[in-house]
Amino acid sequence: MDAEFINTYLLLVTLTSLLANAIISIYGLFFKPHYTKKVIALTILSDTMNTFAIYLGYRTWVNGVNPRPPVLTSTPTEKSISEFTARAVDPLPQALVLTAVVIGLAVTLFLVFLGYILYTHYKTLDMREIKKLKG
């Protein structure tokens, strides 16, 4: 087996693990009865989708030289800029995920407040019992 095959296999293992995480968290979101468990599954699902977006911006190594973060660390000359564009990863998914993480925290806070309101009204957070109570 050559190195390229192993590299491809390892990258696909990463991708398949993320897919498995997404499927497990969707299962938890739909079929677990407890409200808090649903919130946990939702945060895991959004993190997994963010990781997919980051993964799409990645680029491979070239002759043993690693890709760089999209931050220029030297003085901007013609040479350093061309080297930067040749090796830096895609900054656009990172910029989108950055705000998505903070908005996810705000949405989680909203859901936590909602869960507390639910508990004060129904004295339970089990969705099956809340469905039975109807009030």
């Binding site: 980051i54 973060p69 993480v101």
Partner: peptide, 21 residues
């Protein structure tokens, strides 16, 4: 995956704040 910005925002949010809340 070469995303230091996301690490800086993700560590306090997802390891600190969300579990705390």
């Amino acid at each position: 995956l070469m995303a230091p910005d996301i690490v800086l925002v993700y560590l306090p949010v997802a390891v600190g704040l969300i579990p705390g809340v």
